[in-house]
Amino acid sequence: MVIQIILLCGLVIFSGLAILLRDLIKAALSLAVASLFLGLIFFRLGAPYAGVFEISVVAGLITVLFALTIALTKKEDEVQENRLVKVIFPLFFILFLVIDGLVMKSLLTKVPALPSAPEGGSFGLVLWKQRTFDLVAQVGVIFAGVLAVLALFRKTGKDEEKDE
């Protein structure tokens, strides 16, 4: 129970940090840590599949793409942040809690599900033995992201003229 609460607190804190931190790299890393916490929660709840998806896709793959893109942007490209962010985030958070409390709980009980044995297996076992093709696809997505960054941040003829 204590571990569960620590994990949940970690998830909320790092999710909040991901939105509130002004340094983009730190925000992206906070999101990755939040995903890691969520993945661990999934594992503890007996859903290693969901845990694997969360850790490998969100914490791993998407963070790489974020970090790469942020690393390639220049300081002067910094975008002025809208002040509404500080209001919208808490509003969405409250709205989410209300929907979760009032709707989702009753809705989920009405969705039929096949009785199935609890899932088992470690992170490595599920990812490597059962979801191997996802790894190939994730390599593909990371690769596409890296190539996209190379293509979109390449020097064009105009840039070279400017440099001269």
Binding site: A137, G140, V141, A144, L147, A151
Partner: peptide, 14 residues
């Protein structure tokens, strides 16, 4: 879904 994203990410850049 994953392979859909592979094709999609490449297509955004293209």
């Amino acid at each position: 879904y994953l392979f859909l994203e592979v094709a999609a990410v490449a297509s955004y850049a293209l």
